[in-house]
């Protein structure tokens, strides 16, 4: 039980995929105006995508690829699973999600290298399905929390007397850098 908690918290803090591996940066390299609710929805969608793809690829890897000694196919299988899940998510969007504008961010979610990255890094590290699910959820929450932090900071920066050239992407990246330094303090736990 403690191991699972360690996995979950690790994904948010000291193993945070964005701050320690610089993966999944694409949402932070774009300027956009959106509400915190929208952004939280995007984060949760990415979390769901990470959990679903971790679950499916873990089973495929364990049941099909490893017994048949086909591990070298893992990259292709991972991409295919992620792609199929994104298409499923798009169908869900068409059903209508209470007027939220999540579909605007769907290309971001697919191109988001964090989803592919956590699978590449951790698929062989996770030992059970539960660990895979919890670990993926941890990484997803870490991503969602960062998205919300950056969006809230953006909303505040607008009211500050900052020079024009520092607003937008520069301040987002510098804030992320400072957060990364802060998070590296947890690495000893």
């Amino acid at each position: 039980m403690l191991d699972l908690l360690y996995l979950l918290l690790g994904g948010v803090l000291w193993n945070n995929i964005i701050l320690t591996q610089l993966l999944g940066l694409s949402p932070f390299l774009v300027e956009r105006k959106s509400s915190v609710e929208d952004i939280w929805g995007v984060g949760m969608m990415t979390t769901a995508l990470m959990m679903a793809s971790a679950f499916i690829t873990f089973l495929i890897y364990d049941v099909i690829l490893e017994p048949l000694a086909l591990e070298y196919l893992d990259n292709i299988i991972l991409i295919l699973v992620i792609f199929l899940l994104v298409i499923l998510f798009q169908q869900y969007k068409k059903e209508g999600v209470r007027g939220r504008r999540w579909h605007l961010y769907l290309p971001d979610v697919f191109m988001n290298t964090a989803v592919f990255g956590i699978l590449l890094l951790n698929l062989t590290e996770w030992e059970t399905v539960i660990e895979a699910l919890v670990g993926a959820a941890g990484f997803g929450f870490g991503f969602a929390v960062l998205l919300v932090i950056i969006e809230s900071i953006n909303n505040r920066v607008e009211k500050l007397p900052l020079p024009e050239w520092l607003t937008g992407i520069p301040i987002q990246l510098i804030t992320l850098g400072i957060l990364a330094l802060a998070v590296s303090g947890f690495s000893g736990i």
Partner: peptide, 25 residues
Amino acid sequence: SFFAEPGGMLIILGMLFALVKAVAP
């Protein structure tokens, strides 16, 4: 050695982008 960490890279990138924005609007 601070710049070897990911945080250093993000700060470099942010400052470069600010520079580009300030010099060439």
